[in-house]
Design a protein around this nucleic acid. Structure first.
Lengths: 342, 342
DNA sequence: AGTCGTTGAGTAAGCGCTTTCTCGAAGCGG
DNA sequence: CCGCTTCGAGAAAGCGCTTACTCAACGACT
């Protein structure tokens, strides 16, 4: 471990002043071509790497953005994260990825950490809809964009998918397939996305002119495979079983599918199943899963673009609420045989 | 956006000097209790958050570590990342998670970015075994720990799982189940892990006293579900099909399972399948997947602990090569009915 | 009573970089 | 040939914080 190479060493070797080296790095236009070449050669020869924290301290602008998601174990969020990372690196920014694990305390910890790092902006899928963490960040002058979460507040950027519409699409489809007793497996009550999907499901029932009791709600404690398995076991234990299940995400649906198929229930003949997110594993399940597709990658890209735009024009920024439209992908898990439709 | 709150504002409000505020933050012991309380109250009242880049510049020590993985879409790596993140935050460090996507160019980009951020250390699963990125980082005085990748070099810490042994476990099991024609679906040639698993598979054949041609190798261009599907389709097109497949990871195995089941092949009766990693989706597949379990979480924790230890004692650090032992988890996908064994 | 530790707070020098300001050297029309 | 502009490089002031040092105050000794 030698002494670290600084801008000074580069200046010395190129026979210029430190200011000139800095100019080569940040405003190459103002430096004469010959000098610039000489400096670049010195940088190359010495293997100089810019000290980003020092740059940030002096210039006041960071090249880092924070991303706080509910669950990195959920492929939906990793796909969103890839979109974020892609857009961010195109703009020369690094991404610090944090996982709140649906815990408000962990979310708070990560938010404080990002604030201490003086990140350029934060993309967050809040655990609770309450704006506690969001407001805390904005009070400290950090741009925030809500990710996969809409907002009514006009002073905040957000990127979301129309979850209510997605829920409606799924249940309208199940009703059209002739399902009469539909269970909706939702997430914990605080999670905004799953609540909206349930509202959409109710819309679908109303629009189809059916009685509200076609729908039954079964809340799961978390949106993962294990809880889906447990929900499936609960349904299997019942005397009168539903003929369709709509799950608030694909992890739940895959768990439920697994539990029911193992117990000998035929999918979709005895039980139709629809999920949400259309993660890659949904299509690859043994009974390919009907699901509601969201533009995950685009969601991430859009959010990153917004936060970078906002923090580049802090004063004159117009906040935008972007809403994407989801799309139903019908697969085998919900295609009922004609016999049961007629 | 108000003026940002600095250590100076806190000092002013508490009626002390900036040095004392800094001492409260960093060496609380040297400050008298009454003064300390006063400073903490001021911090609280003003909502002060430390400027980490400035601290880092002055003190020379970062509280950030970098993590570069092959594929964030692979649940194996997200579980490892959770382990890293857990151990890191216990030590008060943030994690910058980067995804190389099995591309050497992207890996290089991320490594340079982490160097510019002057991270405390880097955990990396290198795309190629060649030490290019690793050496580049070490030349700049940044501690590196190889993650899920062993090393022969004694001047480097590494954390790995015995992939060769894992491959041997899987194939020994398949042979014991009576399989006679085993295809090993490997990853691209550069990926160290999958090459080792193949070597282990060959060991198993040799130890069982079988002819080497029991095994056939089918390389996949990447270790994901899509490539598994394609591999499955290739096998289905053959006149004489294998009676078992060992895949270099679970994503490949799930894709292959999906392709074969859809085509009416009975698993495990017609075809036994074994994967590697034992990700959660493996147990939840419609035909639960036999797999080789790795201590993913522990792997991450151990790597984080090593890198933090190394960069805290830069000179007198003894490099360690940690190797975990994998474990075979037998499930339905490889349990052949007695009839075909006898 | 004078001396000497101790304790606890203040003072100030930078960490490596950006950026403004300054200034010399050309270039050029009058 | 002179004074003007323009261009390119250097000098220097910090960004917010840490960390020696310095130093006053106060007992405890001799």
């Amino acid at each position: 471990m030698k002494a670290p190479i600084g801008i000074r060493d580069v200046a010395l070797r190129a026979g210029v002043s430190v200011g000139t080296v800095s100019n080569v790095l940040n405003r190459p236009g103002v430096v004469a071509a010959a000098t610039r070449e000489r400096v670049l050669a010195a940088i190359d020869a010495l293997g100089y790497v810019r000290n980003e924290p020092a740059r940030q301290l002096r210039s006041g602008t960071a090249r880092t953005i924070g991303l706080v998601v509910l669950d990195v174990g959920n492929p939906f969020f990793t796909d969103v994260a890839r979109g974020v990372e892609e857009a961010a690196s195109e703009a020369g920014h690094a991404v610090i990825l944090c996982n709140s694990g649906e815990s408000a305390a962990r979310e708070r910890g990560h938010v404080e950490l990002l604030a201490a790092q003086r990140v350029h902006g934060v993309l967050i899928t809040p655990v609770r809809s309450g704006p506690a963490s969001v407001r805390w960040l904005r009070d400290r002058g950090i741009s925030v964009v809500l990710l996969d979460h809409p907002t009514a507040e006009a002073d905040l950027c957000s990127v979301a998918v129309d979850d209510r519409h997605g829920g409606e699409l799924a249940v309208t489809h199940l009703l059209a397939e002739g399902c009469e007793r539909i269970v909706v497996v939702t997430g914990p009550p605080g999670i905004h996305q799953s609540a909206e999907r349930l509202r959409g499901a109710r819309d679908a029932v109303r629009l189809a002119g059916r009685a509200p009791d076609v729908l039954e709600v079964l809340p799961a404690p978390a949106l993962n495979v294990a809880c889906g398995l447990r929900a499936g076991e609960q349904l299997l234990a019942r005397a009168v079983r539903p003929d369709a299940v709509f799950c608030a995400n694909d992890l739940l649906a895959l768990g439920l599918l697994q539990a029911t198929v193992r117990a000998g229930v035929r999918v979709p003949d005895d039980l139709a199943i629809a999920g949400y997110d259309d993660i890659d594993f949904a299509a690859a399940a043994a009974v390919p899963l009907t699901s509601v597709r969201q533009p995950r990658h685009e969601l991430g890209r859009a959010a990153a673009a917004l936060v970078i735009a906002e923090s580049q024009a802090p004063g004159a920024h117009e906040h935008r609420q972007v809403v994407f439209t989801p799309e139903l992908v019908v697969r085998e898990s919900s295609r009922r045989p004609r016999s049961s439709v007629w």
